[in-house]
Simulated assay, not measured.
Amino acid sequence: MPRPHCPRCCRPLDHCLCALIPRLDSHTRVLILQHPSEVGHALNTARLAALGLGNAELRVGEVLEGLPQLLAQPGYRPCLLFPGEGAQPLAQFAEAGQGTPPLLVVPDGTWRKARKLLHLNPALAALPRVALPQGLSSRYRLRKAPMPGALSSIEAIVQALDILEAPARFDALLKPFEALIEGQIAAMGEEIFRRNHLRD
Rank of each mutant, 00 (worst) to 15 (best):
R59V: 15
R129M: 09
L20I: 05
G86W: 09
R11T: 01
S26C: 14
D25T: 05
P36M: 11
E95H: 09
C6Y: 11
L117Y: 11
L48P: 00
P107L: 05
E57D: 04
S138A: 09
E57K: 09
H41F: 07
L151C: 04
L174H: 10
P102Y: 07
R8S: 07
P12S: 11
A126E: 13
P74T: 02
L20D: 14
E65H: 13
L53D: 08
E95V: 01
A72W: 03
K113S: 13
S37K: 12
E182K: 11
G183R: 15
R194Y: 03
L67Q: 10
P12W: 11
A19K: 12
G135E: 11
G109L: 02
H27Q: 15
Y76R: 14
L120W: 13
A172D: 15
L31P: 01
A42T: 14
L17T: 09
R8I: 09
G40D: 13
I21Y: 05
A131Q: 15
L164N: 07
R3M: 10
G135Y: 12
A46W: 04
A168W: 10
L24Q: 13
A186W: 04
G84A: 08
A166K: 09
G40A: 14
A114P: 08
E65A: 15
T28A: 13
E85A: 15
E155H: 07
P128L: 04
G97E: 04
H15S: 14
E95S: 14
S137G: 03
P146H: 12
P68N: 12
D25K: 12
P2H: 12
A56I: 02
P12G: 10
V30L: 02
Q92F: 03
V63S: 14
A19D: 13
G99P: 05
F170L: 08
P78W: 10
G75L: 04
